[in-house]
């Protein structure tokens, strides 16, 4: 349901960031996306939620394909995904409840449905009773849980998390990881980009993608991680265009 076929990508000016990427993630999978800083993890995630369009190849998300999707349809593709960032991305002038409700309001869902789903999602994230707080009244870990609640309130197919623990203490990071695993256990795919390898400890059976030098170098269980040495020309991929 998320599928990359021969995807190459880069930004308007500069070298290609990703080249010849192939993988697919099924419903209900849990996947770590790893790689050195600047290797293109965030870029890969942007391609999934179509904040960036590929130069070559095809990206499929649910029933949408990057080849055929029109600009007008991109918001609908994004509603199939829940997206979480390192910096939480909460609106500080809105309460926790309003932040979570926001994701459903833009879809035009009925008010009673929104109210029910918001309290369910907050409950699920252990934030019952925090609905009327403002984000800045919460700890970092709590703020990130609000962001996760907002990501899953629309019951998307997959949760895309870019460095969600990057701003958090190790203990809190662990807790966030467990929350994401709970969500995954309920059937939602999770793709978690991180360079905090301590999160991968005791997760030998979990699938891991490793990108480096713009290529997908490893795709397999964390326990048997053995990346091929990055090609010598790793940093010098052909330029865009």
């Amino acid at each position: 349901m998320i599928e990359f076929s021969n995807v190459s990508a880069g930004y308007a000016k500069g070298a290609r960031v990703l080249d010849g990427i192939n993988f697919h993630i099924d419903k209900g999978e849990f996947v770590f996306l790893t790689g050195p800083s600047g290797s293109g993890k965030s870029t890969l995630l942007k391609l999934i939620y179509h904040d960036l369009r590929p130069l070559l190849g095809e990206i499929r998300v649910a029933e949408y394909s990057s080849r055929r999707i029109s600009r007008r349809k991109i918001p609908y593709l994004r509603r199939k995904l829940g997206i979480v960032f390192q910096d939480f991305g909460l609106l500080e002038s809105r309460t926790v409840g309003e932040n979570v409700a926001f994701a459903l309001e833009v879809t035009g869902a009925p008010r009673s449905f929104i109210r029910r789903r918001v309290s369910e999602a907050l409950e699920q994230m252990g934030l019952g009773g925090k609905e009327c707080c403002y984000p800045l009244e919460l700890s970092g870990g709590e703020q990130q849980r609000v962001a996760i609640a907002r990501a899953l309130v629309g019951e998307p197919y997959a949760l895309i998390a870019d460095e969600p623990t990057g701003n958090l203490d190790p203990g809190i990071s662990r807790e966030i990881l467990m929350r994401l695993e709970d969500i995954n256990a309920m059937g939602m795919a999770v793709l978690l980009a991180t360079h905090d390898y301590s999160l991968l400890k005791d997760r030998d059976h979990v699938r891991r993608l490793y990108v480096s030098g713009g290529r997908l170098i490893y795709d397999g269980p964390t326990g048997s991680f053995a990346p091929e040495a990055p090609p010598a020309s790793g940093g010098n991929l052909p330029p865009v265009g």
């Binding site: 007008r72 918001p75 609908y76 994004r78 997206i83 991305g89 609106l91 833009v106």
Partner: peptide
Amino acid sequence: REIFIMKIVGATN
């Protein structure tokens, strides 16, 4: 930032 978040959660233009 608000516009970005609106887009991320699937708000149409």
